[in-house]
Computed example of a mutant assay.
Amino acid sequence: MTVSWSAYRRARRRSRQAWGILAVAAVSALGALFWFFTAGQFAVAEPTASGPTEAPVFDPAWMKPVVPVHPVPSGTALSALDGIAVKGRAAKDNYDREAFGQAWQDVDRNGCDTRNDILRRDLTGVVFIEGSKCRVAAGSFHEPYLGQFMDFRRGSEGSRAVQIDHVVPLADAWQKGAQALTAVQRQRLANDPLNLIAADGPVNGQKGAGDAATWLPKNKSIRCHYVARQISVKAAYGLWVTEAEKDAMKRVLGSCPDQWTISAN
């Protein structure tokens, strides 16, 4: 069969167009993968100057709000930071975890304890223990502090590998105003989804009671959200920051001055 030169050129042109489309699709896919592995679920929670977007904090379908001492200030995190008092640390020698109530209570009265609430919120492909609508047996998630995928399997090993981090550590909160809160308010602080993120267990251990001046996530793409979340928690519960902590927060927010505060509403 004889093929004309014009037909041949049309076929070549269509072939080049097809390869061009495939190349663009491949680049887009790689870009999406890069975004997911470096920012993941928290990238969608980073608001811009146009206003706040919903952070991965609260799902009204099955969670009930925990009422803080004060509403989270609206507006930028930098503006909210300027409204937080700057003081030195109070004594830590009288700190006791029990001052914040028994760990992982059902503070929001939705029938599930806080740890399982946060696992359900932060994990994907969640599987519950047979016969339970609360107790998470397995799932996977994009760990925010390291920026990598992790699997969770219920059990002692899984509980060590995946922990629920207090964004503002309770010991830090104790030294910066929480001693003046009531027992009920401290219990809410310890169980408020705004202050809780599923995270790598060893990294959570390394963080300890560190504030922004001594510890920040290795995954830099989460730092703006992380610092904004700390500011939001401290503003909501009337806690203060140290001078060094405020300086560290301002340095982080310097790269994202339009970062808004984070709210559970």
Rank of each mutant, 00 (worst) to 15 (best):
G139L: 01
G139R: 01
G139P: 02
G139I: 01
S140G: 15
F141V: 00
F141M: 02
F141D: 02
F141Q: 00
H142T: 10
E143C: 01
E143P: 01
E143I: 03
P144S: 10
P144T: 08
P144V: 09
P144Y: 06
Y145S: 01
Y145I: 00
Y145M: 01
L146A: 14
L146S: 10
G147R: 08
G147C: 12
G147N: 05
G147A: 11
Q148A: 13
Q148I: 15
Q148N: 15
Q148M: 12
Q148E: 15
F149G: 15
F149H: 15
F149P: 14
M150D: 08
M150K: 13
M150W: 11
M150F: 14
D151C: 09
D151K: 15
F152H: 09
F152V: 06
R153H: 13
R153P: 08
R154I: 12
R154K: 14
R154H: 12
R154A: 12
G155Y: 09
S156Y: 14
S156E: 14
S156A: 15
E157D: 14
E157S: 13
E157V: 14
E157M: 15
G158E: 06
S159E: 11
R160F: 03
A161C: 11
A161G: 09
Q163N: 10
Q163E: 14
Q163L: 07
I164H: 06
I164M: 05
I164L: 09
I164F: 05
D165G: 03
H166D: 07
H166N: 10
H166A: 04
V167W: 01
V168H: 00
V168T: 04
P169A: 00
L170C: 05
L170W: 00
L170N: 01
A171L: 05
D172S: 10
D172F: 11
A173I: 00
A173S: 06
A173V: 00
A173T: 02
W174D: 02
W174C: 01
W174Q: 02
K176P: 11
G177L: 02
G177P: 09
G177I: 01
A178L: 03
A178W: 01
A178I: 05
Q179H: 08
Q179T: 14
A180G: 08
A180H: 09
A180L: 07
L181E: 04
L181A: 06
L181S: 04
L181T: 04
T182N: 08
T182I: 09
A183S: 12
V184G: 12
V184C: 07
Q185C: 03
Q185T: 05
Q185L: 06
Q185F: 05
Q185K: 08
R186L: 04
Q187W: 13
Q187L: 12
Q187C: 10
Q187I: 13
Q187S: 13
Q187N: 13
R188L: 07
R188G: 03
R188D: 03
R188S: 07
L189T: 04
A190N: 11
A190F: 13
N191Q: 11
D192S: 11
P193C: 14
P193I: 09
P193D: 11
P193N: 10
L194W: 03
L194P: 06
N195S: 10
N195K: 04
N195I: 03
